[in-house]
């Protein structure tokens, strides 16, 4: 019996947060590159604060929080971790060449003991490969089961793009710096209405609330998407509250932000539980509860606005070289 070539890493991804956060947490904890609970990773990376809503509440809202290259680089950078982000549009004629390179990069990463993040969609992890069968082992975090992706199908999916990320070494960044940067990432997301211009059908941060409330009031939205967006939003706010509870002493003035998010979460629990009912067949949005859900969301918007005003004050106390220096990368329209 010949020895088979390949690797299987002991990685367990579990969907609880945003798919990118869940995948990143699985990859980093397996590699010993992050210690602590998931809400800390979600908070420190700024991922928890990301909130984007499509005007028709399509489920893609939850991953449409910006251009991944830019967003994920900054998120992982704030954890002090090296990241290579590889991706593009599968319709471009260079895709085949990039696909071959990426397949090699994934295998090299796995050989070094590092699982990869991969757009299935949504984000999952590649935690192994078998060279004889030419397959990758992929987890989506929903079921505990492994899916198989043929090398030849790597990157192909029903969305127009492919994306794969490899992590590397870590440098230690002082906690205060990381927390401050996470707040600034949050503030930027809050204040940027459209993160994927020229697309105006997606609203982010403050505007995401308006899009969500308006759609719930007007109807005609994607009902699966509505539940997915609401639950993801709620999970994120619980994460933020837990994160701030943990780090509130790191920066003066942060306690107030924590109080506001704790209050926000408390105010949402009842209306959310009433609006989303669990049936045997799945979850259902209760029409009759939507007015009270909307008024709870309006209160949450006010609280988050106050929290961000306080974040602005905190941020202003310290120099911000990253935002006072014009970059040579970042936001652009897709080409």
């Amino acid at each position: 019996m010949s020895k088979r070539t390949g690797v299987i890493l002991d990685v367990r991804m579990q969907r609880e947060s945003k798919s990118f956060t869940d995948a990143l947490y699985a990859v980093l904890t397996a590699a010993g590159l992050f210690e602590g609970p998931k809400f800390m990773l979600s908070g420190l990376s700024g991922m928890a604060f990301k909130f984007t809503v499509h005007e028709k509440l399509l489920p893609m809202s939850v991953t449409a929080y910006g251009q991944w290259g830019t967003e994920h680089r900054r998120a992982v950078d704030n954890l002090g971790i090296f990241l290579v982000d590889d991706g593009g549009r599968t319709r471009h004629d260079s895709f085949g060449a990039y696909q071959r390179i990426a397949i090699d990069c994934v295998k090299q990463s796995l050989d070094r003991g590092l699982a990869c993040l991969y757009w299935i969609p949504e984000f999952g992890v590649i935690h192994g490969y078998d060279e004889d069968d030419r397959v990758f082992y992929v987890q989506d975090g929903w079921s505990g089961e492994t899916q198989y992706v043929l090398y030849d199908n790597f990157g192909l999916n029903f969305t127009p793009f492919w994306d794969c990320m490899y992590v590397g070494e870590r440098v230690m960044i002082p906690l205060q710096d990381t927390v401050l940067e996470s707040l600034r990432l949050a503030l930027e997301d809050w204040e940027t209405p459209h993160k994927t211009l020229p697309d105006l059908s997606l609203g982010s941060g403050r505007l995401a609330y308006s899009f969500l409330i308006r759609a719930l009031q007007q109807g005609g939205f994607d009902s699966y998407g509505a539940i997915y967006i609401l639950e993801s939003y709620m999970t994120s706010r619980i994460e933020i509250s837990a994160y701030l509870q943990e780090v509130q002493s790191v920066l003066p003035g942060l306690e107030e932000v924590q109080h506001l998010y704790a209050k926000l979460v408390e105010g949402l629990r009842g209306p959310f539980a009433a609006a989303i009912s669990e049936k045997n067949s799945g979850k259902l949005l209760m029409q009759v509860q939507l007015p009270s859900l909307c008024s709870a969301l309006k209160k949450a918007l006010e609280l988050e606005e106050r929290a961000m005003q306080q974040v602005t004050k905190i941020s202003g106390q310290y120099p911000d070289r990253k935002r006072s220096t014009l970059p040579r990368w970042g936001a652009h329209t897709a080409r």
Partner: peptide
């Protein structure tokens, strides 16, 4: 990409804590 050249690139602030990596 327009001229069919397969390329990889990297960019960043050299004052970033992760620059050495």
């Amino acid at each position: 990409d327009l001229i069919g050249i397969i390329a990889m690139q990297g960019a960043g602030f050299n004052f970033s804590p992760t620059f050495p990596l």
